[in-house]
Design a protein around this nucleic acid. Structure first.
Lengths: 145, 145
DNA sequence: CTCACGCCTTACGTAAAAGTCAATTCGCTG
DNA sequence: CAGCGAATTGACTTTTACGTAAGGCGTGAG
């Protein structure tokens, strides 16, 4: 195994990643990454036909997967990552972005409330289980608190 | 239109809801609710073949939709809502539930981190837009802070 | 009685997000 | 140069989560 991008050698930051390196890092398949490219989420550079991913591509992929974990659709993620790019020069477009930022923020805050609620229910369920175990006189395995 | 369940009449809590009442309340289709029943997420009672939803069913549906908003699959939601039911009497099963509670909690905490990160990126994007607008000398429409 | 209305089941259709498989094509290595 | 491993494209398949259409039951109003 050797590094891609002739190993820039003055230290810390990799210049490029191969597709399989990223699949291993993020636990996804090459198909998934290529699919995201087809969908216009990510645009790796090419050496010949082989894809080379820059650190910024890697970061972008991280963002994409965050969106996925939160249940956003590809189309929504595309819209979201587009907002992270250099702001355009036209006032109307800027205002449009600001509006969408506000919308996404509202969605995320809803999701956050959902998480808090669900965590609360999990606490209740755990309590009920522990109570039941106490009733049964069963010793628990390794409790934190 | 009149109330189902001969209107228990001593006040606040509806006895039953029809399927279309719930679709209107939650903004989903009858197909969706029936699908959830097929998938074993919810078990309304029947009068003849017509489904009648108790307040607890309504609450359950609320939980299901929370799970959906957070990107959980039907199969995961089924597992989750099963944890909310009366704890079983067998110690092994209780321990299994406790384990799954811990797993789900970890997932939710991951999602919460994802949300915080994404909100941070949205803040950055908004800042960039506002800066750009200032550069362009454009007046903004209605800012909160 | 008939008709509309609301709910029911059954069955087929579909969009999204990949999985899987086949046929190639580089680039190196022995 | 033959071959092997890693990457590519393209096509087909699968799973999930419903949408949608077709036809039937029950009941309250006219």
């Amino acid at each position: 195994m050797h590094a891609v991008g002739h190993d820039c050698s003055r230290g810390t930051m990799r210049e490029h990643y191969t597709i399989t390196e990223l699949t291993r890092e993020f636990g996804i398949s090459t198909r998934t990454i290529r699919f995201y490219e087809d969908e216009g989420l990510i645009h790796p550079i090419r050496r010949g036909r082989t894809r080379l991913f820059r650190p910024s591509d890697r970061q972008l992929l991280r963002n994409i997967l965050r969106g996925k974990r939160l249940g956003f659709a590809i189309s929504e993620i595309r819209e979201i990552v587009q907002m992270y790019r250099e702001p355009p020069g036209e006032a109307g477009q800027l205002r449009a972005i600001l509006r969408r930022v506000a919308e996404r923020r509202a969605e995320l805050e809803q999701k956050r409330r959902d998480i808090e609620d669900m965590l609360g229910e999990l606490d209740a369920a755990e309590e009920a289980c522990l109570t039941r175990m106490a009733e049964l006189g069963v010793g628990q395995t390794s409790r934190s608190g």
